[in-house]
């Protein structure tokens, strides 16, 4: 029996992609190169979500100033994600609190989740890429 499946994106398979960001933005290249994958994944019409956990929460903090360290401030790109239909941004509550941060310190609207809800969300994914 043939299975009927909705196939958005011109018949291509849609999968749930989750990008887990765990590193501070400028100490290593992981945050920047993760964002580059996210922007590409968005063009493939996939169901993309981003998670910020551990020092990854610093990637979203407001008022980043990188002039003195000579590295490009790429944080405005997170604001552009909406234009790519990437609107599911989740932040780990414990990671925020540990660092004395709250939702109002962040430059984009996010959903703050407890560990349990985060685990549940990860469980639902087809592809989890951790950076």
């Amino acid at each position: 029996m043939a299975e009927q499946q909705a196939t958005p994106g011109g018949g291509a398979k849609t999968k749930k992609f989750m990008f887990v960001n765990r590193k501070a933005p400028y100490g290593t290249i992981y945050a920047l190169e993760s964002l580059e994958v996210v922007l590409i994944a968005a063009t493939f019409d996939q169901d993309v979500s981003l998670v910020f956990i551990d020092d990854g929460v610093y990637e979203l903090t407001r008022g980043q100033q990188t002039k003195d360290i000579g590295i490009k401030n790429f944080s405005p790109s997170y604001r552009a994600l909406e234009g790519y239909d990437v609107e599911k941004l989740y932040v780990d509550r414990h990671s925020l609190e540990q660092r004395g941060l709250s939702e109002k310190d962040l430059l984009v609207p996010v959903e703050v989740l407890d560990t349990e809800a985060m685990a549940e969300l990860m469980e639902q994914q087809d592809v989890v890429l951790s950076f």
Partner: peptide
């Protein structure tokens, strides 16, 4: 090649 090849792997 481009990052699209990584996403393609995730899909296929």
């Amino acid at each position: 090649s481009g990052l699209g090849q990584l996403v393609d792997s995730g899909i296929k």
